[in-house]
Design a protein around this nucleic acid. Sequence first.
RNA 1: UGGCCCAUGGUGUAAUUGGCAACACUCCGGUUUUUGGUACCGUCAUUCAAGGUUCGAGUCCUUGUGGGCCAACCA
Length: 560
Amino acid sequence: MSDDSKALNFIEHIVEEDLANNFPKEQLRFRFPPEPNGYLHIGHASSISLNFGLGLRYNAPVNLRFDDTNPAKEEQEFVDAIKKDVKWLGYTWDTERYASDYFQQLYDWAIYLIKNEKAYVDNQSSEEMAAQKGTPTQPGTNSPNRDRSVKENLALFNQMKNGEFEEGTHVLRAKIDMTSSNMLMRDPIMYRVLHKAHHRTNTDWCIYPMYDWTHGESDYIEQVSHSFCTLEFAMHRELYDWFLDQVYDAKKVRPKQREFARRNLSHTVVSKRKLAQLVENGVVDSWDDPRMPTISGLRRRGYTPESIRNFTETIGIAKRDNLIDVSLLEFQVRNHLNKVAPRVMAVLDPLKVVITNYPEGEEEWLDAENNPEDESAGSRKVPFSREFYIEKEDFREEANKKFFRLKLGKEVRLKNAYIIKAESCTKDTDGNIIEVQCTYDPKSKSGSGTEESLRKVKGTLHWVSIKHAVEAEVRLYDRLFTDESPDTHKDKDFLEFINPDSLQVIKGFLEPHLKDAKIGDRVQFQRLGYFCVDTDSSSEKLVFNKTVGLRDSWAKIAEK
RNA sequence: UGGCCCAUGGUGUAAUUGGCAACACUCCGGUUUUUGGUACCGUCAUUCAAGGUUCGAGUCCUUGUGGGCCAACCA
């Protein structure tokens, strides 16, 4: 998976440098630390690939750690979903950890800080504390409670822990520097009172540690050597280090925080909060709606773990702002599915064709190759008869030379079958073409080896015998947002850019063996794209999702 | 008015740490093809700007310009 010949990203350079400076390779340890307050998305995939990729590269353990310090937002449902997604992506964690496992240790350390006069209880309102905080250009002022005695702080903190105070009335603060140019160093809050049940510790605690107090210490407890997070935490590093300094034992590994830029994908949002809004507002059906950029949404859409991993590898890791074009993601699914997806025929916008010189009532089962990219995939039989469907857009009464498909008086090959010639067509009262009459060349059967079968005709069409067709619901997806970067407009909310046509549900006609398709099966509808069987599918009602279309150079020609 | 981070083709990353700007995608053009798919070939940047150091600068220095981040009892 990690190829030594491949260029290193800046994170890997940092690790290499540490190794070169005699950091013991056996002490390398990483972690992936999601908060269980939502589902993982494509942005997390980068972080997952980075951390687990590092683990694979250096044969080092990687912990899955849930950053569960806020019981108001976190749920077991999310823990389960996150574990499922990481596994599905193909990664294995060393141990499953929870920040909540460390509540007692964190509490003990907090007492230690109080005793060292590095922390104090503040019982001002949040408004008062905010006022004292100052601004980025103006220093803050000290809290009147900053010089409380150790004894008093200990007593108050104990009361906080024992549930004697209401939420919002008391906090424990680190005593650092109210004049620091880094706002986070202006006596940050370590603990707040929250009378809420936690999904793991239930009501054991009513004081909960804040992120900054928890994260670095958790890394330290787990002896994580390198702690990678996104750029918005860069300013937190100073605080991360300060908290570590308070408890650090020089004989142990001292975790190092470094930051990388979060990956932004075009035409979507990559923020748990905003994705949650899409679900709550009913813009999509669920977190795993196939239009969502969540791991579960991509899975349901038909993406493979390999394609997502290859995507994260090709987009890399860096520190600059970015907006990754979805085409890089789409390329990876096509690339993988091209190798593994069986080819089948399906008509999504049917036009009836009748072969006037083909015997009525007769049918033939023709050989069809399952995958030209994979000989071992073998072949199957497809039924052919006098009446079948082709796509409406594959027929025109007349068209110019660039149109290789069926037109009156011209020939076209039916994939795996015969060469046919359009003779005439019939229309309804509105002038819509409703049927095309053709003749076929009986000697032109695919694979028969006859001179006629070897004839070259410019176009080849997919088709489905009407009598044998299996019907299915087919869900076609378009990008969720009309703007390539919907959440970067100062004057407009991202919800204003919702694409109203992101989902189109149609009826498709499939070749018969597809009636046994199972949920999750991925196939290529030839000439159309890759599709997979949706979780809503059943034996009574087949449901397919369009994963991604094939590259379509005809569409580009047709536009001109 | 402060602090921190960043700047390489249309997009995303590289560049043996000072030595011929590379890879993938996209776009455009072509070859092959019983998928207008796949595969294959080709075109597309003197690295934000201006100075400086150097035999030599994407890489180091200075200044400027542009962008992002920083004041939740969120993570």
